[in-house]
């Protein structure tokens, strides 16, 4: 297969794809039309279960099974990173040098650290009321912890973040999502069905039945998964070095 033939094949394939895409785009309903068959049903089901944020209702109630898939994708990805980024035989851990950071930067990091954590947990807790949820809040909470590395040095972060604890929290949160699902089975309804808890009053923290609990489980899982992921990256970038001469 000469280079020219390959390029020619790419051209034909590309042209075919372009034609199909254009044909498909012509049949797509106009942007912002009035009737949204899926949207109307999703909103009706969400309001029936007193969940103010329809996206969270879709994520954690109507399609909770897909979110189980998303959670296990993240879990597997972090597991893969931990395995790949572990310390190899010919590497040793050098103690991270304490870095000199300007006082205002350090003070800012120490001040914003709890504020960012509270904001992250706020986004998780109000997942079913306002935009946000377990995924977004978990990432914010995890990034908040790493302000210590940015504001000071890696040793300060290691003192506050025992990796083992976060790995255990990661798997515990994943299991709690599953257990919440199995609770539906035990109660005689379907797996991950939102029929166990009362739906509570609309637009309050306890509304939406199972949604806030699944939200919290996903929030904890994403937060600890991101911390473990960054721990692997930081160890490799800051601490682990190859033996000299090997």
């Amino acid at each position: 297969m000469s280079r020219r033939l390959r390029l020619w094949l790419l051209g034909v394939g590309g042209a075919g794809l372009a034609a199909l895409l254009v044909a498909a785009c012509l049949d797509v309903p106009a942007f912002g039309r009035r009737s949204h068959p899926y949207g109307e049903r999703a909103v009706r089901a969400s309001l029936a279960r007193h969940t103010a944020n329809v996206v969270s209702s879709v994520n954690f109630d109507q399609r909770a099974y897909d979110t189980l898939g998303e959670m296990s994708i993240l879990f597997a990805a972090v597991l893969g990173c931990v395995v790949l980024l572990r310390q190899a035989g010919d590497e040793h851990r050098a103690d991270p040098r304490p870095a000199e950071v300007a006082l205002p930067v350090r003070r800012y990091a120490l001040l914003v650290l709890p504020v960012a954590l509270v904001t992250g947990l706020y986004v998780i807790a109000h997942g079913q009321l306002s935009p946000g949820g377990g995924f977004q809040g978990g990432v914010v909470a995890a990034t908040a912890l790493h302000l210590l590395y940015l504001g000071a040095d890696y040793r300060a972060l290691e003192r506050v973040r025992p990796t083992g604890v976060f790995e255990v929290t990661d798997s515990l949160a994943a299991c709690s999502y599953l257990v919440l699902g199995l609770a539906g089975l035990l109660a005689g309804t379907a797996f991950l069905a939102n029929t166990l808890l009362p739906y509570g009053t609309f637009n309050t923290l306890s509304s939406g039945g199972l949604v806030p609990l699944l939200n919290a489980a996903i929030g904890m899982e994403v937060a600890s998964a991101v911390v473990v992921l960054l721990a692997g990256f930081l160890d490799q970038a800051v601490e682990i070095e190859r033996e000299k001469g090997s």
Binding site: N53, V55, S56, V123, P131, G132, G133, F135, Q136, V139, V140, A142, T143, H146, V226, L229, L230, F233, L234, Q236, A237
Partner: peptide, 22 residues
Amino acid sequence: PDVGLSQLAVGSALTPLLIMLS
């Protein structure tokens, strides 16, 4: 807004940190 929140949460601090560490 939910998708926007996810994009801001991941794209503003987490992705740069991962890329720069690598």
